[in-house]
Design a protein around this nucleic acid. Structure first.
Lengths: 251, 251
DNA sequence: GTAGACGACATTGTAAACAATTCTGAATGG
DNA sequence: CCATTCAGAATTGTTTACAATGTCGTCTAC
C-alpha cells in the first residue's frame, strides 16, 4: 500500500501546466458529461413522478437501464444526493427523497426573492424577438393545457420561465434560479392537478408578456410574485391530508 | 455485455423498499461522504491560494496525497467542476479555474440580494446568547487581524457570517448563501491585502452586532450591503492590472 | 408460539488492470 | 532552419473482480 511513484519523471508541474494552456482559453464551458446525463434522466423520473418517494435506486439496475458502468451511475447518484433529490445511506444504497412542507416553504421563499430580482434587472426594453420567443412558448403551453398533455405543459412551462429569467443577463442568477426550481419540480404536479390552476398559470404568462411589451416592470414583478404562490400551498395541503398535520414548520 | 440478472429473485421491489424504511425516518441528513471530504480539502487549497489558477490536478497524485483510490478522487473532481472551481476537459484532465470580472460581478450581485434577504427575515429580537456567539467570533477575528494571521482572519470571518446568516431560519437560503460565498472565497485575498480593508471589515462586524442588539434592522441591511462591496472591486482592479482591460463584462 | 442466532444473498465500496486518448519530444525531410 | 511525422509516455476513462456490509429468511431454543 506504499506510494508507488509519485511523479515518474516526465510530467513535471511546469510542463503539465503548459499542456493545458491552449485548450483552457479556446474551448471554454461545455459539459457533455456522460454521468451527468444519467443524473438528468433520473432527476426527470423523480420530478415527473415516475419514481416515487422511498423508492430505492439500485446501482446495477441503473447500469442495465442506461447501458453504462457503475462508475457513471455512482457519480450520478452522488450528484443527485448533493442536489437533495435522493438520500444515500452508506453501504445501504440510495432512495428518492420527498420534501417536507418546511423545506418547500423555505425553497419557495428564496425562489421568490431571486425570480423577482431577475425580472427587476432585466434590461428594458426587451428586444422584440425575445418576446416573440416567449409568445411561441406560451402558445405551446396553452395548446398543451387545452389538450390536457401534462408532460408538455410541464416542459413548455419550464422553457417559458427559463427564457424569461434568462433575459436578466446575470449568469449566476440564472443558474441559481434554475437550480432552485429543479428542487421543487416534483411538487408542481400537485398544483397542476386542477384545470383551473393550469389556466390561471397560462393567463399569468400572458399578462407577463404584455407587461414585458409595455415595459411595465412593477407589474411584471408582482405577477412573478403571485405566480409562485399557489404551488407550495397546493403541495402543503396535499401533504397534510396525506400525512396528518405534523407540519413542524413555520417560516 | 448482456444483462446478467436484473433481479435474481430475492430482492423484489416491495421488500427492497421496506428494507430502507426505518433508516429513512430515523437517521435523516448526515453526509460523512468520503469523497466529499477530498473535494472540501481541494476546494480549501484553491480558495486559499495554495493552488493557483491553471494548475493541473492529476488523479493519481491526489490519490497518493489523500491515501485513497481514484474512484473517490474522480468523484471529488466532478463535484468541484460542477461547483465551478475547476475546469475539466475530457481525456485531458482537470485544472483550477480563475474567475472573470464578469462572473465575479454576477455572483456578488446575487450574494447581495440573498444576504440582505437573510438579515431581513431574521426573527427579532435575537437571543442574547446568539449575539454572544457573534461577539466571540468577532473577538477572534479582531485578534487575528491585529496579529496579521490571515488564515485565521479568513476562517473567523467565515464563521461570523455563517453564524449571522444562520439566524434567518431558512435552510435553503442559508445553504445558497454559503454556496455562493464559497465560489468567491479565493478573491477575498485581494481584499485582504491591505490592512485598512481588514480593519474596515472588522469595524463593520462590530456595527452589525450593535445593530443586531439594538434591533435596528434597516441599519443591519445597509451594513450588509456595504460590507460586500469592496471585495469584488479589489479583485477586478487587480485583474485588470494583471491582464489588461479586456473586461467583457458590464452587469 | 415467539425471540434470538445463523447462514445465504443482495448490494455497495474498493482495488487493480486494461483500453483509449492526447501530450511531449525527437527524428526526418524539405 | 523550420514544418511534419512518428514513437513513447503520461493521464484519463472503462471494465472487471473482489472485499465489506447489511438484510432477509429460516432454524432452533425456550
Amino acid at each position: 500500500m506504499a506510494v508507488k511513484s509519485i511523479k515518474p519523471g516526465r510530467g513535471g508541474v511546469k510542463v503539465a501546466e503548459k499542456a493545458l494552456d491552449k485548450p483552457a482559453d479556446a474551448c471554454a464551458a461545455q459539459a457533455p458529461a456522460a454521468a451527468d446525463l444519467i443524473a438528468r434522466r433520473i432527476e426527470e423520473d423523480i420530478v415527473l413522478g415516475r419514481r416515487h418517494p422511498r423508492e430505492r435506486l439500485i446501482e446495477q439496475d441503473l447500469c442495465d437501464l442506461f447501458q453504462t458502468h457503475r462508475g457513471d451511475v455512482r457519480l450520478a447518484l452522488f450528484e443527485l444526493e448533493r442536489k437533495g433529490l435522493i438520500e444515500r445511506i452508506p453501504n445501504r444504497g440510495a432512495m428518492v427523497r420527498g420534501l417536507t412542507p418546511h423545506e418547500v416553504r423555505a425553497i419557495y421563499a428564496v425562489r421568490e426573492e431571486l425570480e423577482v430580482m431577475a425580472v427587476r434587472i432585466i434590461p428594458f426594453p426587451v428586444a422584440s424577438h425575445e418576446i416573440g420567443r416567449l409568445e411561441e412558448l406560451h402558445r405551446e403551453h396553452s395548446a398543451a393545457v387545452a389538450s390536457g398533455d401534462l408532460l408538455t405543459v410541464f416542459y413548455s412551462n419550464l422553457s417559458f420561465h427559463q427564457t424569461l429569467f434568462g433575459l436578466c443577463g446575470n449568469s449566476c442568477l440564472i443558474e441559481t434560479v434554475d437550480q432552485l426550481a429543479r428542487k421543487v419540480h416534483g411538487i408542481r404536479f400537485y398544483a397542476n392537478a386542477s384545470p383551473e390552476s393550469l389556466d390561471r398559470a397560462r393567463l399569468d404568462h400572458l399578462k407577463m408578456i404584455k407587461a414585458l411589451r409595455g415595459g411595465r416592470r412593477d407589474e411584471l414583478i408582482s405577477l412573478t410574485r403571485r405566480h409562485l404562490r399557489p404551488s407550495p400551498e397546493a403541495y402543503i395541503k396535499a401533504y397534510k391530508q396525506r400525512f396528518g398535520k405534523s407540519d413542524a414548520a413555520g417560516a
